[in-house]
Structure formats: C-alpha cells, structure tokens
Amino acid sequence: MTKYDGFNYDRDREIYSAARVRALESLLIEKGIISGETVDKVLNYFETEMGPFNGAKIVAKAWTDPKFKAQLLKDCNAAVSNIGLPVGMSGAEGEHMKVVENTAEVHNIVICTLCSCYPWPTLGLPPYWFKDPTFRARAAREPRAVLTEFGVDLPAETTISLWDSSAQIRWFVLPKRPEGTEGMSEEELAALVTPEAMMGVALVPSPSAA
C-alpha cells in the first residue's frame, strides 16, 4: 500500500485540539482555579456512581438471591439501599423506582413520555432513541413490531406490558436470566446485562450463544 502523506488535516487538527484542551487545563491549574484532581472527580461520578453498572448489579443479585428479588419487586428502594450501592441510587432519582419482572408470560417495556424520568443512577445516560417521540408513539401502538426491530422475537403467547415512567415512578425491567448461566457469579452475570435489557427492548443473551 502506498503511503500518502500529503493530507494531514485530521492528524494536525487532532494534535491541535488535544493541545488546546491541555493548555487550558494547565493554565487553570496554574492559576489555582482547578486542581489536578478536579476533572477526575467529575468524571469519576459518571464512571462509578451513576451508570448502568448499578442496574446490572441489582439484576444479577436478583437472579441469584430469591429473597432479594422478592424484596426488590415489592419495594425497590428498600432492597437497593440494603446492598451498598451509592447514596445517589436511593436519593433524588432513585427515590420512586419500581421494578417489573420479565417472565415467560409477560414482557415489560419502559417508555417515558416526559423527558426527565429516566432512572439514570441505575441505567446510565439514555440512548438517543429513548426520547424520540416516534419511538414512544410506536412502542405504545405496536410494541411487538418495535421489539422485532430491536431483534427481540417473543412467542405469540407472551403478553407485552408497557410502563410509562413519570416524575412519580421510574420503572425498570428485571430481565429474564438467560439459559446456560447456572453457576455463574454475580459479577459474571452483571457483565451480561445491558441498559437496553433493563428497558425491555433487548433480552439478555445466553453466554453460550455469543
């Protein structure tokens, strides 16, 4: 393959943007406006306190601990506050969380007609389509067709239930535990759970199918 060096625009632009950001940081630190840790602290919040890993942990625990699961379905907040998740989880946004369980009989989907009701501390940042009015309207009108587009084919006898999150109640779905996961640890199980599965627009795939 011939190497063409004539056009370096992207690379140069890349070096330039990176340098501008680092220059700004170094000036702000020098002036005492921020410290070296300030930015890490902010990012850390998104990486460790608020995110889909919280929801995945809850799901994995519910799969392996029947007592926890029973409590979770009955009183999500009480159950969650007992397993050592960050304070934010049972605070402002987690306050009115409720869990619905997917079974062979019922498949649940969570939608949100208003914008502010996504349970972020549990599910992370919402995907772009979640707030799309078309998605919401279609999910309400033809949930089975929407699920098929997401790659979820359910048996005809499975009922589909729709849950509209609101400022009062934020729903999330406890997905079905996939086949072939017997003997897996909570951590291994949590790694299989995606935000989409906790919204009910995906199934948790069996690890053997992957």
Binding site: R22, T38, V39, K41, L43
Partner: peptide
C-alpha cells in the same frame, strides 16, 4: 482530551 474537556466544563 474529550473527557478532560467534558470534566473541565462541568467542574468550572
């Protein structure tokens, strides 16, 4: 640098 820019904007 994207994370750095994101974090700085919020921190300030």
């Amino acid at each position: 640098w994207e994370g750095l820019a994101f974090g700085m904007a919020l921190a300030l």
